[in-house]
């Protein structure tokens, strides 16, 4: 109940955030702009629209996750509203989880709106809404939630700018994990390969949550790609929330 209360307040607060609304409007505009860009592709409008739409959803979701995710806790500390919340009969971990769920719901609303824009563009072009995009959209949402988890975790002990940089680094390394592994396999004798190996196992492999190309080109996916990808993401998020709650519990608000 207490978690739901914090989540509801966080949702109300984040939905009113102007940065998020601007990013959302820009993303929807970009998805609709793909109708024009697709026209230059010599008969591949539908592919371009879907690629554009899914990429916009992922990129702008990531921007919202970084900008809002980091401000989520920092704002409470800067405005000293955390004293009001912390003085209530509520555990600190409940504050962390509540905040996370609140932002998660806001992001879900964003993803749904962007999906509707994409399906609208698809309906104009193809005459039908391609529901085959759902697995990719679901995993994009999990990826965004994972990035929010990292943003929240870093912002629990680092300054906002550093937190943003670290979150961005996680995103980049996460998408390059496959290459890290290939590199280690190709050159096992290199002195620093332990570092790469370490990075590969610590940072989540975000390519496991990337089905954009597979759904657009209807490529055969490995079995359980969606369910295992979902589980993988949820497990990482839970771990991050545990860590964030642990750091937050020890934090001195003075």
């Amino acid at each position: 109940m207490r978690i739901a209360f914090v989540a509801w307040n966080t949702f109300k607060e984040t939905v009113r955030n102007r940065v998020m609304v601007n990013i959302l409007i820009f993303a929807v505009g970009l998805i609709l702009l793909s109708l024009v860009v697709g026209d230059w592709s010599l008969g591949h409008q539908v592919k371009v629209i879907k690629d554009f739409g899914l990429s916009a959803m992922s990129i702008f979701g990531l921007l919202i996750a970084i900008f809002i995710g980091i401000r989520l806790m920092v704002q409470e500390l800067e405005q000293r509203t955390i004293y009001v919340i912390a003085s209530k009969p509520i555990y600190r971990w409940e504050i962390v989880v509540g905040k996370y769920i609140g932002l998660g719901v806001t992001l879900a609303v964003n993803v749904v709106l962007m999906s509707l824009a994409l399906w609208g563009a698809d309906l104009i072009m193809e005459g039908k809404m391609d529901l085959g995009l759902v697995p990719a959209i679901l995993l994009i949402y999990v990826e965004i939630l994972l990035i929010v988890g990292f943003a929240l975790f870093f912002s629990s002990f680092a300054a906002p700018t550093l937190s943003a940089l670290l979150t961005l680094a996680v995103f980049i390394i996460g998408h390059l994990s496959e290459f890290l592994r290939e590199y280690v396999q190709l050159y096992p004798d290199k002195g620093f390969h332990w570092l790469l190996k370490c990075l590969y196992y610590v940072v989540p492999n975000l390519e496991k949550l990337n089905l954009k190309m597979a759904v657009v080109e209807q490529i055969e996916r490995p079995p359980h790609a969606v369910s295992y990808g979902f589980l993988y993401g949820v497990a990482y998020i839970t771990l991050l929330l545990f860590l964030t709650a642990a750091v937050f519990a020890k934090k001195d608000f003075k």
């Binding site: 592919k47 990429s55 190309m213």
Partner: peptide, 10 residues
């Protein structure tokens, strides 16, 4: 392209 291969190809 970092996971955005479809759009780079387009």
């Amino acid at each position: 392209s970092m996971g955005y291969r479809g759009i780079v190809a387009d």
